[in-house]
Nucleic acid binder design. Structure first.
Lengths: 366, 366
DNA sequence: TTGTAAGCGTTATCAA
DNA sequence: TTGATAACGCTTACAA
């Protein structure tokens, strides 16, 4: 393992000079510097091999170090969902070429915080947790000496305490509702996933977006836009490739059919995500009802397909620029780590409606 | 930042004693040790905060350090495939509770090796690359001073140079072929994905497995088991949630229909994975042929579903214990890192046929 | 422009 | 059973 002293000896020079030269300090003459660099290369000097020594010295002088390591915290089971996969893809797209390593941390309360955090080896954290779930994590991390006040960026969820990159939920729901209204639907039902411990800002924004679209059509939301409280499991991924996993087949229940009995005028559904849209579709099929002949469904996220017999996705959905969000969050993180960005930057991206076969003009129902 | 010296001063004792006590050295009397530990806790001493110092000292005495960091190398786009997701899930299941951090590294040639490798901060590597693709990576890593000869474990692919945990491909193909033969099919076609730069051992094992099943039925493989060279893209995931990605809709071509014209006796297909099985299914549908009425298809991996209108997966497939493989590989890695396992351990796991709606008894075709 | 010296916090050796 | 000392390789303040 070749050290700066080895190089110094070989050059008949002092180690300090080598240290300065290697970092391109202007106090060392260009010729000396060049010679030292040449010898260093020749001897195969590898600066990163001596990271601990450098860290100690830096610490002594009260400096921070960049590790080129970014942690990414995702909810459990994220790996099985295309939604998170797309975000993740964007993150890696940006970080990898810059030489950053990506550390995956589920950061659930039940596992210990990986020692890499305590060691101060992580430069920052990207995460995808809603505010309520993230509060305890944030507290833990902030209290971890090795992490301290390093930057965090939230993906998809708004945050009051740090940066966020997310989508315009209001606009997305507006697009979905408007699409159905333009097709002629007049009585819509918006899915609502009630989970009392989760941040409601996103759902509220979506509800307001749909209401706005209804109002813009001169209709009264109270009458023309109902809420349908979906079974909790509809939100989950349909299929998990886990031997013995519970959700091999979707839960095909009839709460939706019951809802339609109670509200027979409803013809259009705004789902909470694609999985719930597809579950609803299956439920309608099971009841002998047809999409889009009898009912129209709009998914959300555009990450899960509903194939027809020929492999064409039929699910109309609101496409989220998830990969781009991952990319932007990662770029923002790099800027924060390198001190080029403000710690409270927020970015909001627009969605795009992908019209497909699950939506059509309504026909008169009995 | 509290140091051993701080503790020593507070105890009116020498720092060396603190060092020994903290590591439970028997030379320090139990009472002293206990007292020191108590004070250390009180003062909030965090050993991992001083990792660099410890590393330097360790290095000086020629010791290795455990970082509790394992790298996982997966092929590009792995994040969008359930196959890799399941492997990954297993890995994380085991590593996370043990306090290991998981570093994701695509390790493609075009990005620089993350500095974390050069620094010696990675304890070992789990990877999922076939031998031919992995050879250059392995060379690079072995030549990286910070990684050197640390352990590697291969998932799914056999390796001559290091550990592997994989499945019994021969047995899996045997199960699939036997299933079709037992249903009464007598003329089978096995999918073959020709990519000349990839390790063929796996495909060879599967072909031999299917041949064996045919022979065990008293039939001649040369006549009763054909190979169908599938379009390259059939192997890829059907749906990628990437804005503007190329593969939004499957390629529904007719090479399979052409094949059936040339070999009209064929009634049963052994796919190379689930995606190719589903693509084949779509192709048959497009040609007005029906599964399983006219043809039976067996997938492989059991990671991608083919839903009927009610959300029930119809694809018969060979289930791979992917999560378990991830778990075993991770456990093996921990054993290697802690010096408890041999460096050439191999594990082979069995598959299980999941019979569903895509296979049935053949009927007489025109 | 270059050299000197001190110190970061730990571990291991050796002396007490 | 405990204490003193030297080193690991680097960065920086200061002296030459």
């Amino acid at each position: 393992m070749v050290t700066q002293r080895d190089i110094a000896q070989r050059c008949g020079i002092h180690q300090t000079t080598v240290s300065l030269a290697l970092r391109g300090d202007p106090r060392i003459s260009p010729e000396t510097t060049e010679h030292i660099l040449k010898i260093a290369r020749e001897m195969g000097y590898d600066p990163s091999a001596h990271a601990p020594a450098r860290r100690m010295a830096a610490h002594r002088h009260g400096h921070e170090v960049r590790n080129h390591v970014i942690a990414v915290a995702m909810p459990p089971q994220f790996i099985h969902m295309h939604y998170y996969a797309a975000l993740f893809q964007g993150i890696v797209d940006v970080l990898e070429p810059e030489g950053y390593a990506v550390v995956l941390a589920s950061l659930r309360g039940d596992s210990p915080l990986p020692t890499i955090f305590n060691r101060g080896d992580v430069d920052g954290l990207l995460h995808c947790h809603d505010a309520k779930h993230f509060v305890p994590l944030e507290a833990t991390l902030r209290a971890t000496p090795g992490f301290g006040d390093r930057p965090m960026v939230s993906l998809m969820w708004p945050s009051d305490t740090h940066c966020a990159v997310r989508i315009d939920d209001h606009g997305g729901a507006y697009q979905a509702a408007r699409h159905l209204l333009e097709l002629g639907h007049r009585h819509l039902a918006q899915f609502f996933g009630h989970s009392d411990d989760s941040d409601l800002r996103v759902q509220n924004a979506r509800q307001e977006g749909a209401r706005q679209a209804v109002r813009d059509f001169g209709l009264d939301p109270a009458e023309h836009l109902l809420l349908f409280d979906i079974p909790g499991r509809w939100i989950s991924p349909l299929w998990r490739p886990v031997a013995g996993a519970p959700a091999e087949r979707p839960i095909v229940g009839d709460p939706l059919v019951q809802f339609l009995r109670d509200h027979p005028q409803t013809t259009g559904f705004l789902a909470i995500n694609d999985a719930s849209a597809i579950q609803a579709w299956f439920s309608l099929n099971a009841a002998g009802l047809r999409v889009p002949d009898d009912y129209s469904i709009v998914g959300f996220d555009d990450v899960d397909p509903m194939y027809d017999d020929f492999g064409h996705n039929q699910l109309t959905s609101v496409r989220l620029p998830l990969v781009e969000i991952g990319r932007r969050a990662a770029r923002l993180m790099i800027d924060l780590v390198t001190g080029k960005a403000d710690d409270l930057a927020h970015q909001v991206l627009e969605t795009q409606l992908m019209a497909r076969g699950s939506t059509a003009a309504p026909r008169n129902l009995p």
